[in-house]
Design a protein around this nucleic acid. Structure first.
Length: 571
RNA sequence: UGGGGUGUGGCCAAGUGGUUAAGGCACCGGUUUUUGGUAUCGGCACUCGGAGGUUCGAAUCCUCCCACCCCAGCCA
């Protein structure tokens, strides 16, 4: 017997990780003894919420740490909080929640650049002592002028040859608060004629008389990114410092700092860049996302239309779908734009397997089954998932009056319309086959009710001699649970909304609220963030904030694929 | 006109001198189906940004060219 079972189980819960160029580098380093440990870090700036682009970085960094566990793999959570003007503790906790929710665990305590301010200051003094840094008095405009351009070299600051003693004194007085914002700065003494502009004596410390959310008023000078990142990595023993491509030019500076300072430990971190995630029909610029909030286009950072982790969460996305999506996208250095269809595919694939089925009528149309006994109620046992028996059954009360979807009836139906029409038959999902006998309209000509008859011999079986193709979802009128459903759709109509006029590309129907929806009674005790498939409609989740026992609120995560809509579009 | 990167089907992406150029998404068509869902089967790059060259053999090596992205914050 050579029968194997390797393909027989569903592996939706385990994310199989592919290799990529970074993992190849790590493998080589491990094989060649360049490193014996694999330590990464996720270093967000707490100046906004994490978005889907960050998810890629999170999955990369934490994923590597998990997979290299036998090489001491770990990933630090570090807030890169060197700019008190933009950062706040509100974001610190939101970011931690998002990372945890995605299912990752960081190594040890949460860390922050501000936690290293004392050490960073000492490194700066060391650089001054070595004649590798100087206090400069150029203001912003002068600094730019002295820096040169892309094609012409810069020129030396008049303060470049200041003595070590004077630099030490000035730097101490900067720290003591003797100067105002921007009056003085500390610069690395590298090369004003470098073709790499990042190397033209970059500022490494600036004066910012502002209290910091972590360090309060202890400091009025703050280190710059390029000085902070590499040293924080070194302090933490990070071996692989992964960042996005735009920092490629910063890498020589990253290395320069490490080369010119007495490293705090044996680890020499290495920066490796990868391409950031771009998604079509999606905005991932923090500045522009913030404006959507400020302009009240959306409610907040966690509005279900936002591409933030917490927005996706409230929309009903699962952590595993997001992780799988990042896995499918891959990690390379080539910049591109990923189709959001890959994201929606990931959540559909996950929920198809895991979401319990339920029925909910969004736009109800009353239907009376004239040959069904008045007052009779049947409890129909229906599978929670058609393909997974182990998920059990729920009961659906069936009675004389039910609601069906307005869209599922057409008075003058085209041939291909497999739903209800006068004289035609359709299956009520999990129940009987019915035939439409009569259409009742109000004075204005609106269809207000359908009169039908049912075939009592079609419960759990197909009738003989005829085929009924259409299946329609329904809810017993008497037992229906009133609820609110929020239909979310893409926020932007333009494939690339990341332009100056992005506000012009908003989808006016990114949110449609339906207040007269009828759900099957089993949904009465739904819990926040429970996910369902409303059969034939899509995947929905109970809103984690607004849903109550009296008035459940469901958010549409994503619609089911709709071939009928496609056929209609074709005409 | 400086420097740093990247170019494989509509979109991601494997591929590291010898494979019929993986796979996923999207799309198109068939089958199954009490979700027009799912599942399943089939189709979808004589060609790897372009042109030369090396080689018995090139997406993979060399040369030149082209396109796109990033860098001139005391932001990260």
């Amino acid at each position: 017997m050579t029968n194997t079972t390797e393909n027989s189980t569903d592996s939706s819960s385990t994310t199989e990780r592919r290799s990529n160029f970074i993992r190849n580098i790590i493998d080589d380093d491990l094989a060649n003894g360049v490193n014996s440990e694999v330590v990464t870090r996720f270093p967000p700036e707490p100046n906004g919420f994490l978005h889907i682009g960050h998810a890629k970085s999170i999955c990369l960094n934490f994923g590597i740490a998990e997979d290299y566990a036998n090489a001491g793999g770990r990933c630090n959570m570090r807030f890169d909080d060197t700019n008190p003007a933009k950062e706040s503790s509100e974001f610190v906790s939101a970011i931690q929640n998002d990372v945890k929710w995605l299912g990752f665990k960081w190594s040890g305590e949460v860390k922050s650049s501000s936690g290293y301010f004392d050490q960073l200051h000492e490194f700066a003094v060391e650089l001054i002592n070595k004649g590798k840094a100087y206090v400069c008095s150029l203001d912003g405009d002068q600094m730019r002028e002295y820096r040169g351009t892309l094609t012409s070299p810069g020129k030396n600051s008049p303060d470049r040859e200041r003595s070590i003693e004077e630099n030490l004194d000035l730097f101490a007085r900067m720290r003591a608060g003797e100067f105002g914002d921007g009056e003085l700065s500390l610069r690395a003494k590298i090369d004003m004629s470098s073709p790499n502009i990042k190397m033209r004596d970059p500022v490494i410390y600036r004066i910012r008389k502002m209290s910091h959310h972590e360090t309060g008023d202890k400091w009025c000078i703050y280190p710059m990114y390029d000085f902070t990142q590499c040293l924080s990595d070194a302090i933490e023993g990070v071996t692989y410092s992964l960042c996005t491509m735009e920092f490629e030019d910063n890498r020589p500076l990253y290395d320069w700092v490490l080369d010119n300072v007495t490293l705090p430990g044996p680890t020499r971190p290495r920066q490796i860049e990868f391409a950031r995630l771009n998604l079509n029909y999606t905005l991932t610029s923090k500045r522009k996302l913030k404006r959507l909030i400020d302009d009240q286009v959306v409610d907040n950072w966690d509005d279900p239309r936002m591409p933030t982790i917490s927005g996706l969460r409230r929309r009903g996305y699962t952590p595993s779908a997001i992780r799988q999506f990042c896995e499918n996208v891959g990690v390379t250095k080539a910049d591109g734009v990923v189709d959001v269809a890959m994201l929606t595919h990931a959540i559909r694939a996950d929920l198809e397997e895991t979401a319990p089925r339920a029925m909910c009528v969004l736009r109800p149309l009353k239907l009376v089954i004239t040959n069904y006994p008045e007052g009779q109620v049947e409890e129909l046992a229906s599978p929670t998932h058609p393909a997974h028996e182990h998920m059990g059954v729920r009961t659906l009360p069936f009675s004389r009056e039910v609601y069906i979807e307005q869209d599922d009836f057409m008075e003058d139906a085209p041939k291909k319309f497999f739903r209800l029409a006068p004289g035609k038959e359709v299956r009520l999902r999990n129940a009987y086959i019915i035939r439409c006998d009569e259409v009742i309209k109000d004075d204005a000509g609106n269809i207000v009710e359908l009169r039908c008859t049912y075939d009592a011999d079609t419960l759990g079986k197909n009738p003989e001699g005829r085929k009924v193709k259409g299946v329609v979802h329904w809810v017993s009128a008497e037992h229906a649970l009133d609820c609110e459903v929020r239909l979310y759709d893409q926020l932007f109509l333009a494939e690339n909304p990341d332009t100056e006029d992005y506000m012009q590309h908003l989808n006016p129907e990114s949110l449609v609220v339906l207040n007269n929806c009828k759900a099957e009674p089993s949904l009465a005790h739904t819990l926040p963030e429970q996910r369902f498939q409303f059969e034939r409609l899509g995947y929905f989740c109970t809103d984690r904030y607004d849903s109550t026992a009296e008035k459940p609120v469901f958010n549409r995560t994503v619609a089911l694929r709709d071939t009928w809509a496609k056929i209609q579009k074709k005409g």
